[in-house]
């Protein structure tokens, strides 16, 4: 199976690799994993507490090319969005942007889960109750 050019680009030149101090109250950390393929993805957001805007995002992913590309793209999509807008991000946007084949859709799902987990972590740290449905 050939990777799309966009996947290869994000894989070879991942954006925003790294980490923030997870104890920083302005930072939300999402750590998710897919047991089946062994992928593990850490995605962090840095939020401006006055505006609720995500000013920066970083990730570190261990996994296949599609998982790395999905999380790299996710950090790009997050920057400049408010946390509420970020919650609207759907894995299908990642699928379309990267032209992921059906067998790699779970990578985009993982990225969406990581975004939600990071936002929930930020909200929990800052006193907002986490949505009941999501266990982050």
């Amino acid at each position: 199976m050939a990777y799309s050019d966009k996947v290869l680009d994000h894989y070879n030149h991942p954006r925003n690799v790294g980490s923030f101090d997870k104890k920083d109250p302005g930072v939300g950390t999402g750590l998710v994993g897919a047991p089946e393929c062994g992928d593990v993805m850490k995605l962090q957001i840095k939020v401006n507490s006055d505006t609720g805007v995500i000013e920066d995002a970083k990730f570190k992913t261990f996994g296949c090319g599609s998982a790395i590309a999905s999380s790299s793209l996710a950090t790009e999509m997050l920057k400049g969005k408010t946390i509420d807008q970020a919650l609207e991000i759907k894995n299908t946007e990642i699928v379309n942007e990267l032209a992921l084949p059906p067998v790699k859709i779970h990578c985009s799902v993982l990225a969406e889960d990581a975004i939600k987990a990071a936002i929930n972590d930020y909200k929990a740290k800052n006193g907002a109750p986490a949505p009941a449905a999501a266990k982050a």
Partner: peptide, 25 residues
């Protein structure tokens, strides 16, 4: 069998897995 959403993996385990992967790197 063989499909699972991420929220079924305990968070404590993920931390450990992440650290392990860092060491492997």
């Amino acid at each position: 069998v063989g499909e699972q959403r991420s929220n079924e993996v305990p968070a404590e385990l993920l931390e450990e897995v992440f650290e392990l992967n860092m060491m492997l790197d």
